[in-house]
Amino acid sequence: MRKALFPLGLGIAAAVTGVFLLLPLVAIFTRIPFSTLIDQLGSGVVTDALIVSLKTTLIAQALIVVFGTPTAYLLATRRFRGRALAITLVELPLVLPPAVAGIGLLAAFGRVGLLGSTLKAFGVQIPFTQTAVVMAVAFVASPLYVRQAIAAFEAIDQTLVDASRTLGAGQARTFWRIALPLSAGGLAAGGALAFARGLGEFGATIMFAGSFPRVTQTLPLAIYSQFESNFNVALAIGGLLVVISAVLLLLLKIRLGWKSSASTSPFLFARTRST
């Protein structure tokens, strides 16, 4: 009897966790008839928000990849003073409350912000525009990509990089032909995580960009604006985001699983290295 107590405890805890996590998701799809849910997706609010979300998240994603990949490569391949600090800085937005990110962006790029007068001199206004959405998303989602990219670059066998150099390839060619293809799986995983996080961005966006339909109102902001006036629309958007997130996660798992089973990295055959 006593012996059964521990496994029983594990089972109960797991069951409570499972129900707790699953219940809200099930509720989204079952509270109203499924056909009604689908119908709501046709409403103007949803399509407008979907367009704003896709556009801003994709632009943010492109910026994250273009700037984050070289940054990660530098941090992964160079040893310098303050490197640990730099990595911490890059990771900071991950643990920062989104509201803090929002207020920080306002304080930097707002009308009375750090760069406010400079931007104004060039006739640029950022807060409460689509640019602000892109910046908020990039700020909050970038650490997920950069962290993963650093890990992926660090995992590359250094002798492959050395081999590339001795075969006549400079640093740039080595990056494109060796480092990038060998870390592609890790980069894609980081990209998927950052995309999912960016799509769900709420706190920093609402503070820095506001919630203007067709301009800055993304899907999460639309849920917030609709849940009092039209709960069914809010539910439909919720359902849509659940599906997108689930598909992303699934793709990620398939991709990572494929990568580990087909890996032919030479360190599998490594023996004691001579000096």
Partner: peptide, 30 residues
Amino acid sequence: PPEERAVGLVFQEYALFPHMNVRRNVAYGG
């Protein structure tokens, strides 16, 4: 730098590029 020295270095574990076939590995050198 290594790329400007005409050396052929054969590594202990050979360091073949796992994502390229044999032909492309060899063509990488020239």
